[in-house]
């Protein structure tokens, strides 16, 4: 069934190499059972992001009462599978609501990272010369800044908020993508088919879009996946430090309020589940990236080193 769908897509986009290469490598990756698990987990979190609030038994900000008293820090029970927090909110519901901001963070941050990184990397790699030098020195400077403290400075520049914290992540984390994609493009542009197409009189734009991009597309998908992971990770860290809107119930904000309440080690049902959800989501994107290495046999270590 899945195969049929994919081949349908193949037919429809028969002339689009970008789609063909990406779909082809995805299909290869999903043949591996472990990869299927990570992929399913990511789909599951996406599903939670879309429908979680509808599944939640209570509104995330409703204070629950039992016999007229606020149900503070109750341990897990049947009515509240993950207990309640110190102001009587159901943690399971908050966890379900929290999937949406987390997925938005990942997708928005990941797309920002890959679009800036790919633009800089491909431009630097293909155009070369002075442009390459300038862009790479800028990348070096971005590498030199300590990530979290600088993100905090930038967030306080833009004003503390949910979207701001994501934009800042996008503005800082593209550096690794740019470096690795540049080195990829440097290799690709020396290949004979580029020369052939130059000889045939193709313009630079045409070569980049028709020949270079399709060849780095699978790697871009890998970076998108890693970018989702890193965005979620850094945003959760910023949320934990208090540099995001506390009114959007993301998982990072949940961990922060557990920490702030001073009940972190007693109320494990409060601090652990959101933390673990963040950790597993990040892990799934990373492992998904790793399985790319297994089929492509390249780029992985460098990607991991550079991506952070």
């Amino acid at each position: 069934m899945v195969k049929n769908n994919l081949s349908l897509m193949d037919n429809r986009f028969a002339n689009n190499y970008v789609v063909r290469n990406v779909v082809g490598s995805l299909r290869l990756m999903l043949e591996d059972k472990a990869t299927m698990v990570y992929f399913s987990y990511l789909v599951f979190v996406l599903f939670l992001g879309a429908f979680g609030p509808m599944l939640a038994p209570y509104p995330y900000d409703e204070t629950l009462y039992v016999n007229g008293e606020i149900l503070r820090s109750a341990p897990p029970s049947l009515a509240h599978p993950l207990g309640t927090n110190n102001i009587g909110q159901d943690i399971f519901s908050r966890l379900l609501y929290g999937a949406r901001p987390t997925m938005i963070t990942g997708l928005l941050g990941g797309s920002m990272i890959i679009s800036i990184g790919m633009t800089v990397g491909v431009t630097a790699g293909y155009v070369g010369g002075r442009v390459d030098n300038t862009l790479m020195r800028i990348t070096d400077v971005v590498y030199g800044v300590p990530l979290i403290p600088f993100a905090i400075v930038l967030v306080s520049l833009f004003g503390i908020g949910f979207v701001q914290s994501i934009v800042v992540i996008g503005l800082l984390l593209w550096r690794g993508n740019a470096r690795v994609l540049r080195s990829q493009v440097l290799q690709i542009r020396e290949r004979p088919f580029i020369l052939a197409s130059k000889a045939a009189g193709a313009s630079r734009t045409r070569i980049v879009f028709k020949h270079v991009l399709p060849n780095i597309a699978p790697m871009a998908v890998l970076f998108f996946s890693l970018g989702i992971g890193f965005s979620i990770l850094i945003q959760a860290t910023l949320a934990f430090l208090g540099v995001t809107s506390p009114f959007i119930p993301s998982w990072g904000v949940m961990v922060r309020s557990a920490y702030n309440s001073g009940l972190m080690s007693q109320a494990w049902w409060w601090s652990l589940p959101p933390g673990l959800m963040i950790a597993f989501t990040v892990l799934a994107t990373f492992m998904f990236g790793r399985s790319y290495e297994n089929i492509a046999g390249q780029g992985n270590e460098e990607a991991f080193v550079q991506a952070g």
Partner: peptide, 20 residues
């Protein structure tokens, strides 16, 4: 890979809950 990709505050919280 597990310990390496866990956000450090999650690892820290787990250690605190278990050991402390």
């Amino acid at each position: 890979i597990l310990t390496g990709s866990f956000p450090s505050f999650v690892t820290a919280i787990m250690f605190i809950i278990v050991f402390a």
